[in-house]
Simulated scan of single mutants.
Amino acid sequence: MPEQLPPPRLGAQRIAVLAAHLLQVASPPQIKASRLVALENLGPTDQRGTVPAGVSLVCADGTRMLLRATSGASQTPYPDEDPHPNWRVPEDIAV
């Protein structure tokens, strides 16, 4: 898993990585396993199948789910670089 979040202009990838980080730190008992996934039909056309597009979840009861990340348009441009590059999910996060 990437240590840092992708830049804000890569909204869907950024959300997918953030969700994976949150799940890793919070470690909710309802989620047995989670991992980032790349999907062959989603993402930048030159990187489909290689960039994070969601999070695959295996729940404690065996149910499998896909949390798919999406991003919409903004009226203001996204910065090319992360304005908070050193931010990390707090270790004491709870669900």
Rank of each mutant, 00 (worst) to 15 (best):
A69M: 06
E3A: 14
V17G: 05
V51H: 02
T45I: 13
G49V: 09
R88S: 08
L36F: 06
L23H: 04
R64F: 00
G11T: 03
A19Y: 03
G11W: 01
A16P: 01
L10K: 09
A12S: 13
L57Q: 00
H21F: 02
V51F: 06
N86Y: 05
Q30F: 03
A33G: 00
L57A: 05
Q47E: 15
T63P: 00
T45R: 12
L67K: 05
S74C: 10
T50H: 12
Q4G: 03
E91G: 10
S74M: 09
A20H: 13
V89M: 06
D46N: 14
P90K: 10
M65D: 08
A73D: 05
T45D: 14
A94E: 12
P79T: 10
P6I: 02
S71E: 09
D61C: 05
D46Q: 11
Q75M: 12
N41K: 13
D92N: 15
P52H: 03
L42M: 10
L36Y: 03
I31T: 09
V95W: 12
R88G: 02
L67A: 14
C59F: 15
R68A: 13
R35K: 14
A60Q: 15
G54F: 01
E40A: 14
E3K: 13
L67T: 03
D80K: 12
A60N: 11
A94Q: 12
L10V: 00
Q13L: 02
R14N: 08
P2Y: 04
V51Q: 13
S56R: 14
S27Q: 15
D92A: 14
A33L: 11
I93N: 01
V89G: 07
L66W: 07
P7R: 07
D46T: 12
D92M: 04
M1E: 10
R14C: 03
G11E: 08
D82C: 02
D46C: 02
S74R: 14
A73T: 11
Q24K: 14
